[in-house]
Simulated assay, not measured.
Amino acid sequence: MSDPGASGGQAGVFADPYRVYNFKLEIQGITAGHFTECSGFDIQVHAIRYRQGGVNEVVHRVPGPVTYGDIELRYGLTDSRELWDWFMTAVEGRVQRKNISILMLDSRGVAEVMRWDCINAWPARWRGAPLNALDHALAIETLTIVFETLDRA
Rank of each mutant, 00 (worst) to 15 (best):
113 V>M: 00
132 N>E: 00
135 D>G: 08
113 V>R: 12
129 A>G: 03
132 N>R: 06
109 G>I: 03
136 H>I: 06
105 L>Q: 11
128 G>K: 09
105 L>A: 05
106 D>A: 00
107 S>F: 12
107 S>H: 14
113 V>S: 06
112 E>V: 14
104 M>S: 06
103 L>R: 02
126 W>D: 08
132 N>L: 00
125 R>G: 03
105 L>E: 11
101 S>D: 12
108 R>S: 12
126 W>F: 14
101 S>W: 15
122 W>F: 13
125 R>N: 15
109 G>Q: 07
110 V>P: 00
102 I>D: 02
125 R>V: 13
114 M>N: 02
112 E>L: 07
122 W>C: 09
122 W>M: 09
133 A>S: 07
116 W>L: 12
108 R>C: 04
111 A>N: 13
102 I>V: 15
133 A>W: 00
108 R>T: 15
121 A>M: 02
101 S>M: 11
105 L>T: 12
128 G>T: 12
116 W>K: 03
123 P>F: 08
121 A>G: 08
103 L>W: 00
107 S>E: 10
101 S>T: 13
111 A>Y: 03
134 L>W: 05
129 A>D: 05
101 S>F: 00
132 N>I: 00
115 R>G: 05
124 A>E: 03
105 L>Y: 08
106 D>G: 03
117 D>Y: 14
101 S>H: 10
133 A>N: 04
131 L>R: 07
126 W>E: 04
129 A>M: 02
120 N>A: 13
130 P>K: 11
104 M>G: 10
103 L>H: 09
132 N>D: 10
123 P>K: 11
125 R>I: 08
103 L>A: 12
115 R>D: 02
121 A>N: 08
133 A>K: 05
131 L>S: 11
103 L>N: 08
136 H>F: 03
121 A>R: 00
119 I>V: 15
126 W>Y: 15
135 D>S: 15
105 L>S: 09
116 W>D: 01
112 E>R: 03
122 W>K: 13
117 D>G: 11
102 I>G: 01
115 R>I: 11
112 E>M: 09
130 P>L: 11
101 S>C: 14
113 V>G: 09
123 P>Y: 06
118 C>G: 09
108 R>N: 11
114 M>L: 09
134 L>Y: 14
111 A>M: 12
135 D>R: 12
122 W>T: 05
113 V>T: 03
114 M>Q: 08
127 R>S: 14
117 D>W: 04
117 D>P: 10
123 P>S: 06
134 L>I: 01
103 L>Y: 02
104 M>F: 14
122 W>A: 04
111 A>G: 01
105 L>C: 10
101 S>A: 15
132 N>T: 02
118 C>E: 01
130 P>V: 01
136 H>V: 09
106 D>R: 13
106 D>N: 15
115 R>T: 12
106 D>V: 01
107 S>N: 15
117 D>C: 02
129 A>L: 00
103 L>S: 02
120 N>Q: 13
127 R>D: 01
107 S>M: 11
119 I>S: 10
123 P>C: 07
132 N>K: 00
